[in-house]
Simulated scan of single mutants.
Amino acid sequence: MRHHSRFAIAAAVVAVAMGTFAPSALADRHGGNDDQKFVVTIHQGNLAEIAAGTDTQMNAQDSCVKDVGRTLVRDHTKLDTDVKALAEKLDISLPATPTTDQQQQLRDIQDKAGSGGYDTAWLKAQEESHAATLKMIDEEIEDGGDAQVVAAAQKARPVVEMHLHMVRGGTCHVTG
């Protein structure tokens, strides 16, 4: 179970793909612990990815975008249970929703529903956020203090790279 939880956290880092990091109020509540903020960020991103991936099923025009969206929903729905388990183990309170910025970003993309502009905006947001997530992972790997969280970040890196590849250049690439 311990290994499975680490993998779940790692893959959930991908979830950050739809927005910004956790609210600064969490830093105060958790004493500024960067490992805890990292876990909260992963969870909120996970929630955002599930919402964004689900939305592609209703609003994307391109079947590839829908396929990528399904992949993200599948990965993050499956993994969020383990993210919650690790957070509980580490005594980290998790919010019930994505950040306000993540929610707004999805609404902005939804405004383009019914057009190719939706697919383009969705892919661009995914690419930008995955690149930012890789940077955050590298920072956690280098500076993280909790061995479990650092291990999760190390395992997440190839998953995030795979998802980034799927949306690189604002073009959809399904990897079989």
Rank of each mutant, 00 (worst) to 15 (best):
I109K: 01
P23D: 11
S129T: 04
A96N: 06
S63L: 10
G114A: 07
A132H: 04
L47E: 02
D75F: 03
G145D: 03
V167G: 06
I137Q: 01
D119F: 01
Q105A: 12
D80H: 10
V13I: 03
R2D: 04
D111H: 14
G170L: 05
Q105P: 00
M166V: 11
E88M: 09
Q61R: 09
R157H: 14
A52V: 00
M58H: 11
L90E: 05
V174P: 03
T81H: 10
R168N: 07
K135R: 01
P98T: 15
T20K: 14
E88L: 12
R70C: 03
S93W: 13
I109N: 00
A113G: 08
F38G: 10
Q126T: 09
E139V: 07
F38E: 00
V14H: 02
A12Q: 12
E128F: 09
G170E: 12
G176K: 03
K37V: 07
T54P: 08
T20E: 07
H76M: 04
D119A: 02
D75C: 08
G144Q: 11
A10P: 09
H4T: 15
H43N: 08
I42V: 15
P158W: 12
P95D: 11
E128I: 05
A156I: 08
T133A: 08
E139A: 14
V68N: 03
I9Q: 03
H163L: 02
V13M: 11
T120W: 00
R70W: 02
S63W: 07
A156G: 15
S24C: 02
D138P: 05
A156E: 15
T81L: 10
R2P: 01
L94Y: 11
Y118H: 08
D35G: 08
H163M: 09
I109D: 00
K84G: 05
F21G: 14
I137C: 00
G170I: 00
D101K: 15
A22F: 00
A10S: 07
I9C: 11
A10C: 01
V159S: 13
K155G: 08
F38Q: 05
I92S: 01
E139F: 13
G19W: 02
E161Q: 12
D91L: 00
L26K: 02
L26H: 14
D67P: 04
Q110K: 12
G114L: 06
M1F: 08
Q44A: 09
K78G: 01
A147K: 15
M166G: 05
T56E: 09
P95K: 04
V83G: 05
D28S: 12
A87M: 05
H165M: 07
G170Q: 13
S63G: 02
F21E: 13
D35V: 00
L94G: 09
E140C: 14
I92G: 01
K66P: 02
T54F: 03
Q104A: 08
A132R: 14
D143L: 06
A11Y: 03
A87S: 07
V16T: 12
H76Q: 05
L106H: 02
E128V: 08
L26F: 13
R74D: 13
V73P: 01
D67T: 07
V174L: 10
E49D: 11
D55K: 04
L164Q: 03
L106N: 05
E142Y: 06
M162V: 14
T71Y: 11
D35K: 00
C172Y: 01
D108I: 01
